[in-house]
Design a protein around this nucleic acid. Structure first.
Lengths: 248, 248
DNA sequence: GAGTGGTCTAGACCACATT
DNA sequence: ATGTGGTCTAGACCACTCC
């Protein structure tokens, strides 16, 4: 079942893609769109908010909305699930566990995963590829309550996120990510097939379930030149009332 | 003048910071908050949408909102204006023009800045520092209609964004950014004081005015270890109706 | 089944951009 | 002066979570 505002948003995206509203031109007013789609102004605003968040259109009080870009920055899906993003992009993802062991949580891990003292976490080092070319070295620390399930996964499991959802109904709903660049260490270089000391794109992340319970924290290192992240940014912030659907 | 929903959002942020709603706990329901603040449900939803976008809280239909983090990811301000971000963070920004010249726009520049054939752009290479330590090498291409103003700026101008706003009323309202890692070239390494071939965080960006006119496109390279970007991510996308204030 | 958030409506007023 | 988007209200119904 698709909602009213999603239909309108889809129609607008389509119209923009078709060149009906070229980059730099103005969109119809909210009232016009409301009349045209037989919806209320509020519903139309939900629709345009989606396009605004994607960076497709911009808005300023008093003037009509302007088309900024034909292609929305739907990127950052990588940050949700590497395998799911890869398949959606038409690439073939792979995964291979290099090392896996349990250990008592360090103070920092306890803080990030909100664990009691003495809790035991599961460390997994995984090499991920795109079309059988190594791209990403993942060092993940899983919280105790999903450790058993993760441990039971085959070592060439393609998507841990999908597996956990199918087996346990666990959703990786929220993620906080910190992005910077680091030089490749000895192990990084060997596994990713790059020069030691060369550039890697690092993403440190913490992921939570839809109930807000931390599931894992990780240090991901991407080989330079294989991937980039795109972000859209509007001054004065944006956003507002509706939405948020933690579900697969 | 602050709006009703901003006040409520500020009150919620404050309550979370004070530990009234610790990480992992639930927020009051929308109806409770509406009653407590004497506002309608819609206004409360605008407020919580702001916190949701910051990654402070999460929501799922049927359950109360959950506190995810005490500190919102307000980062990415760097992407708006290096100098403004630095000052807000209590650092001392600096800027120095290394090279500046005009040239006919290449086909790619014409596309990104939406220029007519034969247009002439302004190239500026600028070294930026934080507390007098070099941090960022910026290679920017300015669109013709702001070239004169940029060219007239002092070579040690701290904030180009502020200068353009004060002199011409031009606002850098929207930005599209692509982030990856690259190895430092000869010039990069010399100016940033790093090892040649070492890691740099690269951000390629295109910025537009509030009317949606492209102003500049740039290739920014950050010395590794000096800066990182943080992103919050919620599955099923987010966002909705309101807001968007292109102004300084 | 009670309560919660997600969707939608139909009105109103204001600040602002454009003419 | 007109029209536009931004804010706010007061209602309604539904899908979902939780008990």
């Amino acid at each position: 079942m698709t909602t009213r505002h999603e239909e309108i948003a889809a129609a607008l995206r389509h119209a923009i893609d078709q060149g009906e509203f070229p980059v730099g031109s103005s969109l119809p007013s909210e009232n016009e769109l409301a009349a045209r789609h037989g919806a209320s102004r509020g519903t139309v605003r939900q629709a345009v908010a989606a396009l605004t968040a994607e960076g497709r259109i911009g808005s300023r009080q008093g003037a009509r909305r302007v088309v900024l870009s034909t292609q929305g920055s739907q990127n950052f899906g990588v940050l949700r699930s590497f395998a799911q993003w890869a398949r959606a992009a038409g690439r073939r993802p792979s995964g291979l566990v290099i090392d896996q062991h349990r250990a008592p949580a360090t103070p920092q891990e306890r803080l990030q995963l909100r664990l009691r003292p003495g809790a035991e976490v599961l460390h997994v080092m995984r090499l991920r590829g795109l079309d059988s070319e190594p791209v990403l070295l993942e060092r993940t620390v899983y919280a105790p309550w999903i450790a058993d399930t993760v441990e039971a996964l085959p070592s060439d499991c393609e998507s841990v996120v999908s597996a956990l959802y199918e087996r346990e109904g666990i959703v990786f709903a929220y993620g906080e990510h910190e992005i910077d660049a680091v030089s490749a260490g000895k192990q990084d270089a060997e596994l990713l097939g790059t020069r030691r000391g060369g550039p890697l794109l690092r993403v440190r992340r913490t992921t939570s379930s839809s109930a807000g319970r931390p599931l894992e924290c990780a240090d991901d290192r991407y080989r330079a030149g294989t991937l980039s992240f795109s972000v859209f940014n509007a001054i004065g912030a944006n956003l507002t009332p509706v939405a948020g659907k933690p579900h697969d």
